[in-house]
């Protein structure tokens, strides 16, 4: 058996294209990332643990992961609802809503940050009525969750939408004709079909929220131990020239995002496999390969 790196092809340019790709990838991404791990590994295990598990860092993890989870859960529920409404119903302004779903991707995070802060500040459009009933939105963990809901909003919608579009109504008709109620059809037929895509969107929204900085720093109030997110803690340490501290916490975040890549990839594979299965079941659905997200 001989080992072949590349299948034979009559097209030219493989060497040049792959060579340039690998070179550019190494210069911009791989070498700088490796340098970070190198720097982190110059700390002793005890030093690393002392920084990464310090009470202030742990408080920031708790806030970052907790608020990201809340934001992603809100987006899971409302994202499926929005995708459903956009695919299944027609109503005035539908196309406008559809294109504006992507706003959190397109709007610079600093702009989102100051806009949300102004809305939810104690004298803001929504902050004032909320304050009247005793809820402090901006400058509290709730504000962090609001900002993280905003930036994760498109993920679930854009992940579920193509699956719903490709899903054939014949399956639902079959369920209905066999005597299923509308709710039974939804929970037993529709939900299992869109579940992998919804979970993939949820995981992506969560991963994005954990690393988010710009939209959160304005609304959070940045009080150590209470409303300080992990990315801000890294910046604080950098501003104090505490490079070792910044690197240790960055290494924790990097490891976390690498670990999260695996379930996201698996969920996406599961989702596209499901897609193929339903497509095979119902030959009519000639869906385009979604270039979504």
């Amino acid at each position: 058996m001989t080992f072949t790196f590349k299948k034979r092809s009559s097209l030219p340019g493989f060497g040049l294209a792959l060579g340039y790709t690998v070179l550019y990838l190494s210069l911009i991404v791989l070498i700088p990332l490796a340098a970070t791990f190198l720097k982190a590994s110059s700390l002793s295990w005890q030093q690393f643990w002392h920084i990464a598990a310090s009470p202030r860092a742990v408080a920031s993890y708790r806030l970052t992961f907790g608020a990201s989870l809340i934001g992603a859960l809100i987006n899971l529920g409302f994202g499926v609802l929005v995708a459903w409404v956009l695919v299944r119903y027609s109503f005035p302004g539908k196309r406008l809503f559809d294109s504006l779903v992507d706003l959190p991707f397109a709007l610079p995070t600093a702009v989102a940050g100051i806009a949300l802060t102004t809305i939810y500040a104690p004298n803001g459009w929504l902050g004032r009525p909320l304050a009247a009933i005793g809820i402090k939105a901006a400058y509290s963990p709730l504000g962090v969750a609001i900002a993280l809901t905003f930036i994760g909003l498109p993920f679930v919608v854009r992940s579920v939408q193509p699956v719903l579009e490709d899903m054939d109504k014949e399956l639902e008709e079959a369920a209905a004709s066999l005597g299923a109620s509308r709710w039974q059809t939804f929970s037993r037929v529709v939900l299992p079909t869109i579940l992998p895509a919804a979970l993939a969107g949820f995981a992506m929204a969560f991963a994005r929220a954990v690393g988010e900085y710009g939209s959160v720093v304005f609304i959070s109030g940045n009080m150590p131990m209470r409303t300080e997110i992990t990315p801000l803690l890294i910046i604080t340490k950098l501003d104090q020239y505490d490079y070792a501290g910044a690197t240790a916490i960055a290494a924790v975040m990097l490891m976390f995002s690498l670990v999260l890549l695996l379930p996201i990839n698996l969920l996406q594979k599961w989702s596209s496999r499901r897609d193929e299965k339903t497509a095979a079941l119902v030959p009519q659905g000639g869906g385009t390969p979604g270039n979504g997200t």
Partner: peptide, 23 residues
């Protein structure tokens, strides 16, 4: 290779800046 190309999307923006400071 595809996973590595996507990598910058899963790194926190703050960490993306930090890696250049460290280099």
């Amino acid at each position: 290779l595809i996973t590595l190309i996507d990598l910058p999307f899963s790194v926190s923006p703050v960490v993306s800046g930090l890696i250049y400071v460290l280099l």
